[in-house]
Design a protein around this nucleic acid. Structure first.
Lengths: 200, 200
DNA sequence: TTCCAATGTTGACAGTGTTAACTTCCGCGC
DNA sequence: GCGCGGAAGTTAACACTGTCAACATTGGAA
């Protein structure tokens, strides 16, 4: 974020700066519809400069989405509870970390799951995009080994968990979860329902 | 869809035609990023004509989103199974109808839940947008009365169901649910998990 | 019949993504 | 040291878009 005075002709690390700037703009929550030209403007660079680092806007969006999956993965992986670490506690900690990640950066989260410009195919099949699901699978396998879960196929279960947590996140983001229609604490209610479906 | 030859100066029912055309374009699945000018073109009308019926593009999108909620509501309400009508059968029928609605019209479904242009506030607080949730609540109340459910607060449960089904729909839409990672039939697996969390 | 308001058209403006042609400058081989 | 090739950045242009103002056409009420 250095000032533009005395800026050399070559930026040095424009690719990184563009991604950072775009990420910051995503946080301002204008519906992740930031413009490439505005990104260039804020990065203190001409409007065509980004094209030296990304073939088009969709490529930048894909890159950001993948970065988002990395961060989500880390948020989940580092969400172990402090003291008691019963399986249920850990499950709740990971789930809450997931939801918090989405609700505290809705623009990024929406971008990660939007199939805009066909980037979905490339992004969603990537190993990086599937890493968060891996955390869930590992967690379920541990629960299965500890015998606290009903005997069901783990992969199907993982899908169920993912869907539930993803749904909670999106509905909360869109403001649909603070109505009197879904009770005072819909997040915990939904997680409890999920847990009661998993545990034996 | 009449031809443009001999078309009178006044369209007669342009507002309706615009919505229909836009809906059709949404089905073509270009990421619901249709342009207003293209809608006008296909409707055989000048590019500014839509502004006589909608203040801006966001207003058209809002209208379409509300229409989508109406259709979703109807799809759920008319999804009673034929023969046996145990509570579980009915629950599964409604859930599958919900998911099918989304996956068979992903553009419209995404539009309904996207907070683009701040339409979310207006649209999502509308009674029409909450009607589908009403179906779920009624269904849960019936299940509670029949004594097939655990004793939990109905509203929180409704939120949980909504989140689960919404999550399944979105992940299926984005193609994330046909991977070996989530098993051969993730839809049924997720619904079963949800049911097992609800039933006593 | 006359006239007005609703409806549709044309032309313009600012802003966008993208490409082509040009410029600047870093780092390499000599 | 020196020149030069290519990477990185700039300017200018194109075809679009959403939106608005000014104008044209029409059906229906007075």
């Amino acid at each position: 974020m250095q000032e533009a005075t005395d800026r050399p002709y070559h930026h040095g690390n424009l690719r990184h700066a563009i991604i950072e700037t775009a990420m910051a703009m995503l946080l301002e929550e204008k519906g992740w519809q930031f413009t490439l030209r505005e990104v260039a403007r804020r990065a203190g660079v001409s409007h065509a400069a980004p094209y030296k680092h990304f073939p088009d806007k969709a490529a930048l969006l894909s890159e950001m989405a993948l970065l988002g999956f990395d961060r989500l993965h880390k948020a989940m992986a580092t969400a172990k509870p402090r003291g008691a670490n019963s399986w249920r506690d850990e499950f709740l900690a990971v789930s809450r970390a997931y939801v918090r990640f989405g609700t505290s950066n809705p623009g990024l989260y929406r971008l990660m799951f939007s199939a805009e410009a066909g980037n979905a195919a490339d992004v969603h099949l990537s190993e990086r995009a599937l890493a968060p699901l891996g955390v869930v699978i590992a967690l379920l396998e541990r629960g299965e080994a500890e015998g606290v879960l009903r005997k069901r196929e783990v992969r199907g279960r993982a899908g169920a968990c993912w869907a539930q947590v993803h749904g909670i996140t999106m509905l909360t983001m869109e403001g649909l979860f603070r109505l009197e229609k879904v009770g005072p604490n819909p997040l915990d209610a939904a997680l409890l329902t999920l847990l009661e479906g998993l545990e034996s």
